[in-house]
């Protein structure tokens, strides 16, 4: 393939950043997108230059580490696919591809394509759990949970916390992420006792981190590699409203 890449380079949070253009050789269609970047980096290192920093780990779509905006779309726009699972056969031989980091105030750039997503961890720390210590749990089958409820909780729990939803949103809202965690927990009987506190505390932290407001454009759902549904946002709004009314 004869690609032209326009890659965002930024030394650190204080650096304004710029695009750099590459025309890598030896790219073939069976490569994954990250393997393509590996090739670019090998060339750079051999030329004595600093490779492009980008985040990745599992390379199989589950850890949520990779975080590239490809041609303007978080993860590149293939349905239900993270950047690490995207393959070059989806691109044209002569394509020009732009690669940028997640862009959001709450996700400052660390270097090149790497951003700081610790805001997500801080939101979870405010209530994304059931307060049970180790030991003393009753037998797992003491608590039958209907398959429908359990499946719906699992639909929400599948979120990989990558942050594509924030990157896609014009307001950089984190509602899809937060609502997935709140819904996973609040749907299950185990999560009910803390349901009100959870949603209030997590939403408060979300606002403090500087994420924007949700105007339900649905761009988050469209790019979510785990296809987390917008319905969870509706559900969280309901949970939140009820919790506030209860005081």
């Amino acid at each position: 393939m004869n690609l032209t890449l326009k890659v965002w380079r930024q030394k650190g949070a204080a650096d304004p950043g710029h695009f750099e253009t590459f025309q890598p050789k030896g790219i073939v269609e069976d490569m994954s997108f990250l393997e393509m970047l590996d090739v670019v980096n090998e060339e750079l290192i051999e030329a004595g230059k600093e490779p492009i920093a980008f985040d990745h780990d599992c390379r199989e779509g589950i850890c949520g580490t990779c975080s590239l905006v490809i041609n303007g779309k978080p993860h590149g726009g293939q349905k239900a696919t993270t950047a690490c699972q995207l393959h070059m056969r989806k691109f044209g031989k002569w394509d020009t591809i732009t690669i940028e980091p997640w862009r959001a105030k709450a996700f400052p750039v660390v270097k090149d394509l790497v951003v700081d997503r610790s805001a997500f961890d801080r939101i979870i720390q405010k209530g994304g759990f059931v307060s049970v210590g180790t030991g003393g749990a009753p037998d797992a089958n003491c608590l039958p949970i209907s398959k429908e409820v359990s499946d719906e909780a699992m639909d929400a729990a599948q979120c990989i916390g990558c942050g594509a939803c924030v990157a896609a949103c014009k307001n950089a809202s984190a509602m899809l992420f937060v609502s997935a965690k709140v819904s996973h927990m609040n749907l299950l009987p185990q999560g009910k006792p803390e349901a009100d506190r959870r949603v209030k505390n997590m939403v408060r932290q979300m606002d403090e981190e500087g994420f924007g407001a949700c105007t339900v454009t649905g761009s988050c759902e469209a790019v979510c590699p785990k296809e987390i549904s917008l319905n969870f946002i509706t559900k969280m709004n309901r949970d939140y409203g009820c919790a506030i009314l209860k005081g």
């Binding site: 759990f129 059931v130 049970v132 180790t134 030991g135 749990a137 009753p138 037998d139 797992a140 089958n141 608590l143 039958p144 949970i145 209907s146 398959k147 359990s150 499946d151 909780a153 699992m154 729990a157 996973h184 927990m185 299950l188 185990q190 999560g191």
Partner: peptide
């Protein structure tokens, strides 16, 4: 398994609600 269920791990279930 008991601990994980108490934490809210959504293990697969049968229609009767058991694991």
């Amino acid at each position: 398994i008991d601990q994980c269920v108490a934490q809210g791990v959504p293990f697969a279930r049968e229609y009767g609600g058991l694991l």
